[in-house]
Simulated assay, not measured.
Amino acid sequence: MSDNLARHFLLREDVVFLNHGSFGACPRPVFAAYQGWQLELEQEPVEFLGRRLHDLLRAPRQALADELGCGSEDIVGVLNATSGLNIVARSLDLKPGDQILTTDHEYSALEKTWSYVCRKTGAEIVVVKIPLPLVSEAQFTDAIIAGMTERTKVLFLSHITSPTALLFPIEPAIAEARRRGIWSVIDGAHTPGHIRLDLDAIGADFYAGNCHKWMMSPKGSAFLHARPEVQSLLDPLVISHGWTKDSKQPGAKGAFGSSPFIDEIEIQGTRDPAPWLTVPAALQFRKENDWWAVADHCHALAQETARRLGELTGLPALSSPEFCAPQMVAMPIPECDTAEIHKTLFERYSIEIPVFKWQDRCIVRLSVQGYNSVAQMDQLLAALTELLGLTAPPLAAQG
């Protein structure tokens, strides 16, 4: 199956690409649709951007809303999850002494975002240490709730963590935050197309996710979701044609007839809308190729590879399987120069995979997508065995 699916992708054949989680990889048909939109724009830019764009932007909103379980007026396109979360972080009315509750597993760019906000507002970041290995929902939820105080104004969580590839069971913590009047802000950068999402059921106040990773749309396509009750809290990062002076009034409309939440964020000067317009093509590609079944195969391969490496290293996993991201796993390795291992894996073995130090652990973060194979997992394990001085790995049972 992997060899057959690999033909759909533009990845270099001389590289073993095991890092889909960082930037994704766009299938050929989806990339062709992306270039088609770009060509159409260039053929008549004024018509496309000046007269057609507002209507064109509705289609990806609706397609994504249907996929993610939310209303099409509660979701808006942004360049990436980081930009969407910056809109939220820099809009919320925080004051000196207010607390932003988060975990020790967050993405570094967002750690910097909240640090910037705290410098501007006088708010404070409170970091909860999540006990490892993560083996139960209560273990996670109890740790989060224990960190909540009367000063907690924001709960900021990753749904799937970047450094540790953990799938956090966020729903009970979000419900408790709502009960206490705490804004919940969720970094879902890795979740769309990775797990089945129902944003209305999750119930977060704000949720941002990338489409360019596991949904496999072009780079520059992501979304911000906000519950209708909190949309008026948001200000765009760029004030442009979509903004109106009455945008905070009850029932206000944006400059182009949608809500201020939609118009102020969507219409921010000249940009290339092709990545966002291609989201329906990415969803169609996934449907035509039964990608949830592909994801199940990838999950099994990722877990089997992690199990095999764990047998070689003797190091415990960071979580039980149900709290590991389905197609991504952070695999502990013995103490080493992670930068040198990363460099050598690519230069000597042509393997593209993140290797880094997280807290007191050395980590290899494996992503498995439909274009990967058992043979590539064998290559990775053989390379790590040589570089780390491990006992030679057995070949996988599949081949």
Rank of each mutant, 00 (worst) to 15 (best):
Q376E: 13
T113P: 09
R12V: 01
M377H: 09
E340R: 05
I130Q: 09
T103S: 12
R61A: 13
R28G: 14
G147H: 05
M216A: 10
R361Y: 03
A302Q: 13
Y34D: 01
A339R: 10
L312D: 06
A165W: 11
P393T: 05
W183P: 01
G181S: 09
Y116W: 01
E288C: 05
D246G: 05
G36T: 11
N80D: 00
G310M: 14
R227M: 11
T103H: 07
A295S: 10
S259P: 11
G257T: 10
P133A: 03
V135Q: 13
T164R: 15
A189P: 02
L387I: 03
L155D: 01
P192E: 05
S83N: 08
E137I: 06
R119Q: 15
A325V: 01
A81C: 15
A204E: 02
V15Y: 14
T305N: 08
L155S: 01
R90E: 11
H20G: 07
Q284C: 09
I202Y: 12
C26K: 07
E264N: 13
C298A: 03
G50I: 03
R119L: 14
C26R: 05
L41N: 03
V128N: 00
F261H: 05
T121L: 02
Y371C: 03
A317W: 03
L11D: 02
L345M: 10
R271V: 05
G69I: 03
H299D: 04
E229S: 04
Q99P: 04
P96S: 02
A63I: 09
Q43M: 11
Q139P: 01
T385S: 10
S319W: 12
P236R: 14
S108L: 11
I144T: 08
A81W: 13
W37T: 08
P27M: 02
Q376P: 14
K219Q: 09
I174K: 08
A89G: 12
F17E: 02
Q379K: 15
R365W: 01
R52L: 06
M148N: 04
